[in-house]
């Protein structure tokens, strides 16, 4: 499992993004995190070559949400063979935007003194959920009504053993906010909101039935391609 931090969203364990075999001995593993409003790409660079590596730099291709390095990739000393270095690269969301398929695809170029290497990775959308994503209740009700039913997407979150309060507090840790909770005929209905860094709002209804480990998630959003990735974020957050 990953790491739950007190002041930040869920962080998945690092995985290998660039195998050494494909990059003349440079291995890169990484993950993404969000802590008190700051997004970072957390990397481990490992030198599996027989020569020293230096002169590192990183660049992102245009992507759906304008993710970009907020600082240069700083490796303070040359990397000797078999040496690893951990780097937290701060990111912002003011880079060039181009819609990717899948939406959360990120293409990265890394260079060192040997060559330039390319890889792509998927980032979890919850790193883009902002801290002020709690919608006013009146606005929620009006927006929910305003977005047509055709724009409502339905998903099943299967085998989740948490109760409604535990669900709310876990999601809030990743900036998904519960605005109202109602109990109708024994089932808990949670009304929730979140906002992405680019200002897109997502409204959610999470239905939890007694003695049923499968939850129903209904999402309303003016951007119809977004809900699938929001559902994936719910799955990731609730099951870790």
């Amino acid at each position: 499992g990953g790491v739950g931090t007190l002041s930040g969203s869920y962080v998945a364990p690092k995985t290998v993004w660039l195998p050494a075999m494909k990059a003349k001995g440079l291995e890169i593993s990484g993950t993404f995190s969000r802590q008190v409003g700051s997004i970072s790409m957390d990397l481990v660079l490992t030198n599996k070559a027989l020569q020293v590596m230096s002169d590192f730099a990183i660049q992102f291709n245009r992507n759906s949400f304008g993710l970009a390095p907020a600082a240069p990739l700083q490796v303070h000393a040359p990397l000797t063979p078999n040496q690893s270095v951990e780097i937290s690269l701060p990111l912002n969301t003011v880079g060039s935007v181009m819609k990717m398929d899948p939406l959360n695809n990120l293409q990265v170029a890394v260079k060192n003194n040997i060559d330039v290497f390319y890889f792509s990775t998927l980032y979890p959308l919850h790193i883009l959920f902002v801290e002020d994503g709690k919608m006013e209740r009146q606005t929620f009700l009006a927006t929910w009504k305003d977005i047509p039913n055709d724009n409502e997407a339905h998903f099943q979150i299967k085998e989740c053993s948490l109760n409604a309060d535990a669900v709310s507090s876990k999601l809030q840790g990743s900036n998904i906010f519960t605005i109202a909770k109602r109990n109708v005929e024994g089932q808990d209905m949670l009304y929730q909101s979140l906002k992405l860094t680019n200002g897109i709002w997502v409204l959610a209804e999470l239905r939890i039935q007694p003695n049923n480990p499968n939850f129903t998630l209904s999402l309303k959003c003016r951007a119809p391609e977004v809900p699938l990735y929001i559902y994936q974020a719910y799955e990731t957050i609730l099951k870790n």
Partner: peptide
Amino acid sequence: EMDDGLDEAFSRLAQSRTNP
């Protein structure tokens, strides 16, 4: 909590979603 009619509105929403 101040009764601004919104509590009731959420109850109606939840009700309508359960028994459309």
